[in-house]
Design a binder for these strands. Sequence first.
DNA 1: TTAATATATGAGCAGATATTCAGATAAAGA
DNA 2: TCTTTATCTGAATATCTGCTCATATATTAA
Lengths: 119, 119
Amino acid sequence: MVEQSRDLCDCRLIHRRTVEKAMASALAPNETESLAQIFKALADETRLKILWALEQREMCVCDLAAMLGLTESAVSHQLRLLRNLQLVSNRRDGVVLYYRLSDNHVSQLIKITLEHLRD
Amino acid sequence: MVEQSRDLCDCRLIHRRTVEKAMASALAPNETESLAQIFKALADETRLKILWALEQREMCVCDLAAMLGLTESAVSHQLRLLRNLQLVSNRRDGVVLYYRLSDNHVSQLIKITLEHLRD
DNA sequence: TTAATATATGAGCAGATATTCAGATAAAGA
DNA sequence: TCTTTATCTGAATATCTGCTCATATATTAA
């Protein structure tokens, strides 16, 4: 006869202290959420291509669309997302908006991950 | 009379060289895909919590489930994903599998991103 | 003001994904 | 061998997300 659900294993008793410590040093809920948002922004091939291109030169929406073979609308949607997370900034020159990376954290993240992939 | 679609702006002609250079220095398709996979792995609050906990101590599936308030099944699914990307490894002690981070790239990524969020 | 250009935005759909549920494996001990 | 424990896995589902389409906004030039 089964007395407990299969989802309650003995480790929960044996490792009680481990779990308590892990919970005590866990990320704050808002930190976890913000981290996930940033990584979500990097978790898409289109946005990665955009960011990698901007890491090397500023480009307008139209340039990015041409480079990626996508509509300018699609690119603009992605740029808004990146803008909201302050990963990219822009400057206006007449009707044209030139986008660039806001800081060098993004390129650091991409480079470290490329390093990880090469191991 | 409109001669070109709205999706073909003059920038494509004016900035032709910019676009060509961007395409020449673009990430290889397989690099882009692999990068996106890694960032996708980090782009989920559950997996972030798992990785942050493992950065500080090894833990078994059961511990992680208790810590996160999730079923062991859900945790196991996520660990498989992280294992497939070689972000975590495990050692067996009897019936218990203890998980840990495979290398320190993940904690670097999380720390850089936390830094970005603090600016 | 009017027209043209570059970009932004909202709605909607197709495809991706995190969790749950039910059941399957693998190691240890009786 | 049989049972128990810890973990794994496939299928199903509800939610999320990237793109397209149509339209709106903002800047410039006529």
